[in-house]
């Protein structure tokens, strides 16, 4: 597997088991342009076939391969070994703030349940049946929505958020970010319904603006800005008596 001239090897510690687990050490050949997902896949294919982990697209679209790499949550398919290895050492854990299933696979149920709880889904209006909605690409709402829309649902922001670790009911950056795109969607029939769902004590007002989500988001989104927007809009709705 190792190409000529790449005799260097990596020492890799990988979490095995669920909460009561342990680190298992592996030695993996170092390659050019190698990603963390390549390392995990090498271990599973060549060294220990019982290693469990999750991935699908391998190109940063699906959001399924997120893991904790040397203490930080990252999308492993787009994270180069050379950018994160510390003297040839890599430690890989499952994502923080999620129940551990086995090895590097976590249970994402709670994460997506919170998207539902945040009413983070589009509410169509009758008017849409008459034809295409005209949305001005230069309008403020469209720009706000565009800035937040590219979320791939990887759960990295949720793992990076200290507030989630303190308050397990907190809806989390991804669900609130999605709600913000819908509040700015002029086609959505119930913007105040979205605001109501996120204005609770486990919603947008719980955010401390620490920006763990924003500094770790692999798509360079700013859930912090989206949450601040939700705070502004819900305040305006309160003044108008809409909440």
């Amino acid at each position: 597997m190792a190409a000529a001239g790449t005799e260097k090897s990596l020492k890799v510690d990988i979490w095995r088991g669920d909460d009561d687990g342990y680190y298992q050490s592996f030695t993996v050949p170092h390659e050019t342009s190698q990603t963390i997902l390549d390392v995990v896949t090498y271990v599973q294919r060549k060294l220990d076939a019982t290693l469990s982990y999750r991935f699908a697209c391998r190109v940063g679209m699906c959001g399924s391969c997120a893991m904790t790499v040397n203490g930080r949550p990252r999308w492993t398919c787009r994270t180069h070994v050379d950018s994160v290895a510390e003297d040839g050492y890599i430690k890989i854990d499952p994502l923080r703030n999620f129940p551990r299933v086995k090895d590097l696979a976590v249970d994402m149920t709670v994460f997506f349940d919170k998207w539902r709880d945040a009413k983070a889904r589009f509410v169509p209006s009758e008017a849409d049946l008459d034809g295409f909605a005209q949305v001005d690409p230069d309008s403020r709402e469209r720009k706000e929505a565009s800035a937040a829309i590219e979320c791939i649902g990887c759960g990295i922001c949720y793992a990076a958020c200290d507030l989630v670790s303190w308050n397990p009911d907190y809806l989390g950056p991804a669900a609130l970010n999605r709600a913000w795109t819908l509040v700015n969607d002029v086609r959505d029939a119930d913007p105040n319904g979205h605001l109501k769902a996120v204005a609770g004590d486990a919603g947008c007002h719980a955010c401390h603006s620490q920006q763990g989500c924003t500094s770790h988001c692999p798509k360079s989104l700013s859930p912090t800005a989206s949450i601040a927007g939700l705070k502004r809009k819900s305040f305006a709705a309160l003044l108008k008596g809409a909440l």
């Binding site: 204005a199 609770g200 004590d201 705070k231 819900s234 309160l238 909440l243």
Partner: peptide, 12 residues
């Protein structure tokens, strides 16, 4: 606890 209370606390 209600969302309105949280909102008012935020505003205050």
């Amino acid at each position: 606890m209600s969302g309105r209370l949280e909102l008012w606390l935020f505003v205050l």
